[in-house]
């Protein structure tokens, strides 16, 4: 069982949360302008890395707010938790979250 740190409520156990899949997937500005391949890629294709993954969680049994988590999908280590709208932290070689990151 994972223990996640909700940015608003603090550390809680996994059953309080629901999973939201890959983070930072941006909805296309003008879906009508896309061809089938591009729209299919937006709807169905997701990263599935063996390693660091940026993903969304919602504190469903708590504050019901969404947030992002950087987690290693092999070790399940949570490397960073950050709020919606905040840039993804840069992960250092040491596996610790740095100060700044790309949006």
């Amino acid at each position: 069982m994972l223990r996640l740190e909700c940015p608003w409520c603090g550390p809680r156990e996994e059953p309080e949360f629901h999973y939201g899949g890959q983070a930072h997937v941006v909805r296309p500005e003008d879906p009508g302008a896309l061809d089938d391949a591009a729209w299919g890629a937006y709807v169905f294709l997701r990263d599935n890395p063996k390693g660091v993954f940026a993903e969304r969680w919602v504190h469903a049994s708590g504050c019901r707010r969404w947030f992002n988590v950087l987690r290693d999908t092999v070790t399940n280590e949570v490397l960073a938790v950050y709020r919606m709208g905040e840039p993804m932290p840069v992960i250092m070689a040491s596996g610790r979250a740095g100060e700044e990151g790309a949006p």
Binding site: M1, L2, F53, N76
Partner: peptide, 13 residues
């Protein structure tokens, strides 16, 4: 389990 993982282990709950 609810989340992506390559760990070959899951949650006890």
């Amino acid at each position: 389990d609810a989340y992506n993982s390559y760990a070959q282990r899951g949650g006890f709950h």
